[in-house]
């Protein structure tokens, strides 16, 4: 009883806190100064049609670097905790997959991979980018594992892709310091014609590396969990 009332007090406290923050909030009618700067001069400075991409990669690029690092740490800890003995491949009783699902997955998996790559190559033109593309690629891998559970996924390949793309991401950032205005500056390459696929400087290249890295990290988590399902 005492505990329940304590919980209620905590909830009411949160409610009051949040209500206090938002009382009188009646919707914005205009952008604030910073957002206005990003929106007005972003297309010329960065050359990216998707302003969210401009903020994520260029204006707040270091945030993204930290974010990718956190994800890397999470994936590394998961794989550390779920360590399985080498060579202990699939030995568990499973119900066989339906033939229809098998065929459909074989048709769909390449399509999903292509769509994921489309999402991160077009990150500066349409919604999406490295994170979404990586998640979609990992989903394709999940579909593959669901339809053909006996499939071996190369851990070495995943680790290789992950480290190469991570290092390249940082190297591009450093190259920005050396050859352009600052860390992760995108004017390393010319900005190109606004709205085409080769534009916005190095943003597409960075997003390709971010996408590969995120996809590899999420795939690592998934494959670790998948291989850990054997009995006891």
């Amino acid at each position: 009883m005492v505990k329940n009332s304590l919980i209620f007090i905590v909830l009411i406290g949160f409610a009051v806190l949040l209500a206090d923050l938002f009382v009188g909030f009646n919707g914005n009618t205009d952008l604030n100064t910073l957002a206005n700067h990003y929106a007005v001069s972003g297309p010329e400075e960065v050359g990216s049609a998707n302003l969210v991409t401009a903020v994520v990669i260029t204006y707040r690029g270091v945030d993204t670097l930290g974010e990718v690092t956190i994800l890397f740490l999470a994936a590394a800890i998961v794989s550390f905790l779920l360590k399985v003995e080498a060579g202990a491949s699939l030995n568990r009783k499973l119900r066989s997959t339906s033939e229809i699902l098998d065929t459909a997955s074989r048709i769909l998996v390449p399509v999903i991979f292509l769509f994921g790559i489309y999402v991160f190559i077009n990150g500066h033109l349409s919604p999406g980018g490295g994170f979404q593309g990586g998640a979609i690629i990992a989903s394709g891998l999940v579909l593959m594992l669901l339809a053909q559970p006996a499939k071996e996924v190369g851990h070495k390949l995943i680790t290789l892709v992950e480290s190469i793309s991570g290092i390249s991401f940082v190297l591009i950032g450093v190259a920005g310091v050396l050859f352009a205005a600052g860390f992760l500056d995108n004017k390393l390459l010319s900005l190109g014609k606004f709205g085409t696929i080769f534009s916005a400087g190095v943003i597409p290249i960075i997003y390709i590396f971010v996408g590969l890295k995120v996809g590899a990290e999420l795939s690592g988590i998934i494959t670790n969990l998948h291989e850990n399902q054997n009995e006891a």
């Binding site: 119900r95 066989s96 997959t97 699902l101 989903s139 559970p149 399902q229």
Partner: peptide, 19 residues
């Protein structure tokens, strides 16, 4: 569309002990 399809398949495979 892609993700809703995947979700249904995951839960079904879990039900029939195919995960």
């Amino acid at each position: 569309g892609l993700l809703s399809f995947l979700g249904v398949i995951i839960v079904s495979r879990y039900f029939e002990r195919g995960l």
